[in-house]
Computed example of a mutant assay.
Amino acid sequence: MEIIRFAQLKPQPWRNGGGVTRELASHPEAASAQDGAWDWRVSIADVVSAGDFSMFPGMERVITVIDGELLLLTVDGEEHPLEKYRPFRFSGEAASSSALPTGDIRDLNVIARAGEFKGYTSIIELSKKRAHPVFEGQLAVLLEGKASVTSGAQTAESAEAPDGEAATTEPVDLARYDAVVGSDTRSPEILGRGFLAVISIDRVEHAHS
């Protein structure tokens, strides 16, 4: 079971000085040092001043305000008021800029290479009684509240895992903005109270002519 601890992520300042980004995950991982060399990236950004967003040619973006009230996003001249927990999809090639009418915000960014991957963000309310599983190709980020994660029910494949892995059924507490990496062998299960962002990255299937 893999947990990405937000507190351990290094903030990367924006080129224009308008904020900082912390990268949760990217693919391929070796490309994360070169901006835009990856096929997809999931990150959390602190936006502290109005201004232009970086352009990502060939990419599609999904942005979700996760802290603060409102981000006023202008995409190719059209204004979109983005409220908290409402994911918004737009082209990475578009000229986009932000205004902060209610002060600083924090947002969750999913950027994926158009035609190769498709990124989705959904916000769900956690339950204390019914665990929320996180599957392969998903990343679950605790946005607010209290939650813990266990490594889920054992499957036939994981039963053959090396000794020691089976002992991870004890609940592990999550801090705010910690991310749980999904798996299909022992899908992590999250219980608690609060809100969770579930990010899915799907590979686009190409029809063979």
Rank of each mutant, 00 (worst) to 15 (best):
D163K: 13
L70Q: 12
L70F: 03
A131D: 04
F56Q: 01
D178S: 09
S43G: 05
S96K: 02
W14A: 00
R15K: 15
N16M: 06
N16E: 03
E157L: 15
E83T: 13
Y120S: 13
M55Q: 15
S127P: 10
M59V: 02
T185A: 11
P133T: 10
Y177S: 01
M55H: 12
E29V: 15
S91F: 02
A197L: 05
A31H: 04
I111Y: 00
R176A: 03
R113N: 04
Q154V: 12
I63F: 02
F90G: 00
S96F: 06
T102E: 15
M1N: 05
S97V: 04
V20F: 10
R203P: 02
D184Y: 05
I3R: 14
I111M: 12
I44K: 00
L9Y: 01
R176P: 00
A207F: 09
S96Y: 10
E69L: 11
S209R: 11
S209Q: 08
I199K: 03
I63A: 03
P87Y: 08
N109G: 03
S209D: 11
D107M: 09
R15H: 07
L82T: 06
R130L: 10
L9Q: 09
R41M: 00
P11F: 00
R193T: 15
V198I: 13
S96C: 10
T21Y: 01
V181Q: 08
V110C: 09
A7K: 15
I66L: 02
M1W: 07
S158P: 08
A197G: 02
A153Y: 06
E170D: 14
K128N: 13
S183L: 04
V180Y: 08
R193M: 11
T102W: 08
E205C: 04
D52Y: 02
K118E: 15
K10I: 09
V141M: 05
R86N: 13
A156E: 14
A147F: 12
I66A: 01
A153D: 13
Y177E: 02
A167W: 10
I63N: 01
H27S: 12
I199R: 03
V181F: 03
E205N: 05
D202E: 15
T121Y: 01
T102D: 15
G51T: 06
K84M: 13
T185F: 06
P101F: 11
Y177A: 01
L70A: 07
H206D: 05
V20H: 08
W14Y: 03
A112H: 08
R15S: 06
H208F: 11
L126H: 06
G17W: 09
L24D: 01
P57I: 03
F90M: 04
D163V: 14
A95D: 07
A167T: 11
G145W: 08
S32W: 04
D46M: 02
E170K: 05
Q8A: 12
L126D: 02
A112T: 14
R5Y: 10
V172C: 07
Q138N: 09
E157D: 13
S43I: 01
S49W: 02
